[in-house]
Amino acid sequence: MTKQRGLSHLDELESESIHIMREVAVSFAKPVMLYSIGKDSSVMLRLAQKAFHPGTPPFPLLHVDTTWKFPEMYDFRDRMARETGMELIVHVNEEGRAQGIGPFTHGSALHTDVMKTQALKQAIEQYGFDAALAGARRDEEASRAKERVFSLRTRTHRWDPKNQRPELWRLYNAHLSNGETMRVFPLSNWTELDVWNYIDREKIPVVPLYFSAPRPVVRREGTLMMVADRRMKLEPGEEPETKRVRFRTLGCYPLTGGIESDADNVPAIISEMLSATESERQGRVIDRDGEGSMERKKQEGYF
């Protein structure tokens, strides 16, 4: 064995994220951690537990529920809240629910705007949160590569990419003016592969949908969509078939495409990724609404 100098890549990422979470806990009056139930949220949760050990993390979890998640995600969410002992706040845009907004009837763009972007703004205002920890990574999408770790939102929750605070060393500027809020991204420097390596090393539980299993799917616009509940109406001629599929990202099931895979455990997923040719966002319908669509959504307040 050669003598190891410094920390390994994963150790360094872990320490950096813990450092960021602690800064948030002490710098803001009412921070919250956004919990989306996905693998990044699972890693965030574990990092938060580590950061404040032996205490529990000094902030609640917020799940902005679009009401269109996979059923298994809800089970997993409630289990994690129980196991960590953290307060879980679930927020639904009730106006949107009353109007029956959904991806099948209103399209992905409107659904995401009302049930996710607007819902998040509502929750932040309703509870008076001044900082929200979120699991976005810079490797996910080009516009995220330019975002700060501490990313300021205006009174109207907008992100102004041309007017970001310079962020030097680890000196995060947490000062807010009236009505401004902060989004903080402790996983900024992580990649999808880092996330899976960390899940593997730390034995972190994730939603079973990430693992391959026989599932009922239909093929729509080139993606494999799971028939997750009764709200999914089959189009004429469509017949669900059972395939071994898994999901690389989890969101609203009608907006999340599965991939055919046999990877049914974490090491297998990592092996598969090492030879993958498509990026994880590929399965997300939302990114393909047009060029620069993620940048536009972020400016409007989507994560």
Binding site: Q4, L7, S8, H9, L10, N197, R201, I270, S271, L274
Partner: peptide
């Protein structure tokens, strides 16, 4: 390949 990769990840620095 995977096992070699996992071993490397504990020593690879940044």
């Amino acid at each position: 390949e995977f096992r070699a990769y996992v071993n490397a990840r504990e020593t690879r620095d940044v």
